[in-house]
Write a protein that binds this DNA or RNA. Structure first.
Lengths: 239, 239
DNA sequence: GTCTATATCATGATAGAC
DNA sequence: GTCTATCATGATATAGAC
């Protein structure tokens, strides 16, 4: 019956998402998924056609919600400030805060998705990345235009590059926060639970804003505050 | 004979690295590697014990060279400025420029390694990440201390977080430069070859320095320039 | 729609001759 | 050190009864 259909479908989706987040999608077998979901092995082929169809469905479900959220925030900003250029900080928050808040969400599945997303973006040969950037194309276009208007002095090239850098910083803020702690012998091993979404978000936002509004690199010439030591960077081989 | 041994070993290492960069290490079979290297299938087990031993060897080879390079640059900086605190821009360049320059290197294998490195860091269940952060531990410690001395007004927590953010920005600067171009309908599809290492490095350095020296988020209170709209961020579900 | 059973294939690892 | 041949395993996908 129909209610059974969507129930089974969503059960598979949930189980797959959780396993993908821990193991990655190609280290996760359909047998693991169907066992965790307590459904039959063949049901995934029935509902999603193939394993690839399943992982695509996993991403689309969360990604659509995430990007809808971002667009809603941006629409609200643009409605409130009629015609006026938005503040860069508000644009950044509309884009990045849904991601960070999802990543710190109490729901374990929801929280696990964000690192999974970041990881899957860096799979070059994957069909997934194509699906992800396709799902993002409208959002990127909207936010790029908003940033352009809010920073009229910064050339478009630079905006796009810096937007790209900000994506990377946010990615590491989320998925790698715990990873490098041991490597850098983190001075405060006792992490407070309260050091969660809001604090991380503020740390990140300060950094992103600082980078976004940094003085432009005077292309060609060497910037005053950013001097490259020629002897250090030109000689690639070491003594 | 001995010359044959190291020759075979390095041939395998090169072929594996190249394939890993394109496909990822766990989408690459030993049969692919040995075919590309024109060696026997069993030779990888003979020389590296197992497939895992091979991938670990692939990473160690390049990583050691990269980190030696970084440490040499830092040593040179500290020798030149005796006792004095280093400029943050110089510390950042000593750490990040070897990575970026490798990523833009003319050698295809060398260039391909950096995205591979970034991707493998985001595999949570992997034994590789442990090896990578182990290989980085001395470098991180040295550069963390250098940054601390060069920015005495910034608390240690913030330094470490921002260092982490910078790693992310650099990662995306390198591995994803081409990835999101289509998604954001990049305005200049014709990419000049000259837009390579130096220009990218300057763009990145401006951003990193801006973020590193950004005003601190006044922890607890809400910063003036960074206001979160409560109605927009608390209501997670959309109409 | 769900289940069992199976087909088909690719992988990592090893045994043993040379 | 290198090779051939093979094993054992686990993967996706499908056929066909219910």
């Amino acid at each position: 019956m129909s209610s059974q259909r969507t129930s089974t479908r969503n059960t598979i989706l949930d189980a797959a998402e959780q396993l993908f987040a821990v193991q990655g999608h190609d280290n996760t077998s359909m047998r693991q998924i169907t066992s965790a979901a307590s459904v039959n092995l063949s049901s995934v082929n029935y509902h999603f056609g193939s394993k690839d169809g399943l992982v695509q469905a996993v991403f689309q479900r969360r990604l659509r919600a995430l990007n809808d959220e971002r667009l809603a925030l941006l629409n609200e900003l643009e409605n409130n400030a009629k015609g006026e250029a938005l503040k860069p900080s508000h644009v950044l928050e509309a884009f990045f805060s849904p991601l960070v808040l999802h990543a710190c969400s109490p729901g374990p599945d929801e929280r696990a998705f964000v690192p999974l997303l970041e990881r899957s973006m860096s799979d070059p040969g994957g069909f997934i990345r194509a699906a992800i950037i396709d799902e993002h194309s409208e959002v990127f276009s909207r936010f790029r235009q908003a940033l352009l208007k809010s920073l009229p002095d910064v050339p478009e090239d630079e905006i796009i590059w810096r937007f790209h850098f900000m994506l990377g910083a946010t990615s590491y803020a989320i998925s790698g926060a715990e990873a490098l702690r041991s490597a850098m012998d983190w001075p405060h091993p006792q992490q407070k639970e309260a050091e969660s979404a809001q604090v991380l978000l503020q740390r990140l936002m300060s950094f992103l804003l600082g980078g976004l509004r940094a003085p432009l690199p005077n292309s060609g010439a060497v910037p005053a505050c950013n001097n490259i030591n020629p002897t250090a960077t030109n000689g690639r081989s070491l003594p």
